[in-house]
Computed example of a mutant assay.
Amino acid sequence: MDYQYPMDMDWTTEEIVNVIRFFESVEKAYESKIPKDDLMSAYRRFKEIVPGKADEKKYTDEFKEVSGYSAYLVMKKAKETADGDPVSMK
C-alpha cells in the first residue's frame, strides 16, 4: 500500500482506526476474500462515523482514486453474497 486512507482530522483515534479497518476490508475483498460478516461489521461501524450519503461517497471516492478499489462495488457484491459466504472481487 503506497497511499494514505482518506480521513477527517476531527475524528477520534478510535474512529480513524475503524474507518481504516473498513477500507482494509475493501482491500481484502479485492486481494483475496473476506468473510461477509466481517465486512458488514466494518461497514456498519464506518456508517456510524460517516452517516451521510454525501460524506460516504466523498470518502469512498477518495479511497477509490488512491487505491483503485471501489467500496461501492464491494458492498454491492456483499449484498448479493449469501450469509456465511466470503466476499471476493476476484
Rank of each mutant, 00 (worst) to 15 (best):
E62N: 04
K53H: 06
M75R: 08
K77Q: 15
T81R: 09
Y72H: 15
S67N: 02
L73R: 14
G52S: 12
D61C: 03
K53E: 12
D55T: 07
T81G: 08
T60P: 04
A78D: 03
A54K: 15
D55I: 01
D83R: 08
A78W: 12
K53F: 07
Y72A: 15
Y69M: 13
E56K: 10
G52V: 02
D55V: 02
K79C: 09
Y59P: 05
E65S: 12
S70W: 05
K76W: 10
L73M: 12
D61H: 05
S67H: 00
A82C: 04
S70L: 05
F63W: 03
A82L: 11
T60H: 04
D83W: 10
V66D: 00
D55C: 01
F63G: 02
E80S: 15
S67E: 01
Y72G: 10
L73Y: 12
S70G: 08
A71Q: 00
K57D: 07
A71V: 02
K53S: 09
E56T: 13
G68Y: 03
E80I: 09
K57L: 06
E56R: 14
A54E: 15
F63E: 01
Y59R: 03
T81S: 10
K58D: 08
Y69A: 03
K58W: 05
K79M: 14
A71S: 10
S67G: 02
E80Q: 15
L73A: 10
A71H: 02
V74P: 05
S67I: 00
K58V: 07
T60C: 12
Y72R: 15
M75Y: 09
S67T: 04
S67C: 02
A71C: 05
A82T: 08
S67F: 00
A54R: 15
A82Y: 09
K77H: 08
S67Y: 00
K58Q: 11
E56A: 10
T81E: 11
Y59N: 04
